[in-house]
């Protein structure tokens, strides 16, 4: 049985079901990260002292990662635009770039975590590091999840383009929405943890 409203628009919502589904999911994600940001505010304002992020973390690495993630958002949206222009080859180049940039972000994060763990700065080291690992760790898992989905659409999932290009384009658009959300979260995490 075919999944309904993957391509056609429901008259009552004016949207296909995938679009509504991804936005409802992102709404729940906003609340998930919102709860952690609220925890951060609570812990920071309740603490007698709090280090400036750039005194304990490497803000230059984080700035580099910010540029990487913003660039990956651009390649993601260009991948979708390529499908809209019916240029599948260009789509694959942009999608590969998106996955690779996500990989670069994770590699930088690996070096960042390794450095702090080597110094004995585990989550139990201080409230700062507890919330730092929680927020960046959850965000990192989202980057990883987004990379897996995007890699699927670059590889085996791309077969759908031959049989139903509109559905495939919709799928890429929805995975793109998730990827942009991950970028959006980092845009707030970066100054909050590394600069303030």
């Amino acid at each position: 049985m075919d999944i309904p409203y993957t391509v056609e628009v429901r008259r009552d919502t004016g949207l296909n079901n995938g679009k509504i589904g991804i936005w409802l999911f992102l709404a729940s994600e906003v609340m998930l990260f919102g709860a952690l940001f609220a925890s951060y505010i609570l812990i920071r304002t309740g603490s007698p002292s709090w280090p400036r992020g750039d005194t304990v973390l490497d803000y230059r690495l984080a700035t580099f990662n910010t540029i990487v993630l913003i660039a990956s958002s651009v390649t993601m949206v260009m991948a979708w635009a390529s499908l809209m222009r019916r240029r599948f080859g260009t789509f694959r180049i942009y999608m590969a770039a998106t996955v690779l940039l996500g990989g670069v972000f994770l590699v930088v994060k690996y070096f960042e975590y390794s450095h702090h763990l080597h110094l004995g700065e585990y989550p139990s080291h201080s409230n700062f590091f507890a919330i730092y690992y929680t927020l960046t760790g959850l965000h990192m898992l989202h980057v990883l999840g987004g990379m897996v989905v995007n890699a699927y659409f670059w590889g085996p999932g791309a077969k759908l383009w031959n049989t139903n290009p509109v559905w495939f384009t919709n799928r890429v658009e929805h995975s793109g929405l998730f990827w942009h959300f991950v970028d959006l979260v980092w845009i707030f995490l970066f100054p909050t943890l590394y600069l303030l």
Partner: peptide, 10 residues
């Protein structure tokens, strides 16, 4: 009856 013939906003 809920569907239209359009392919979303594309």
């Amino acid at each position: 009856h809920l569907a239209t013939t359009d392919h979303d906003d594309h």
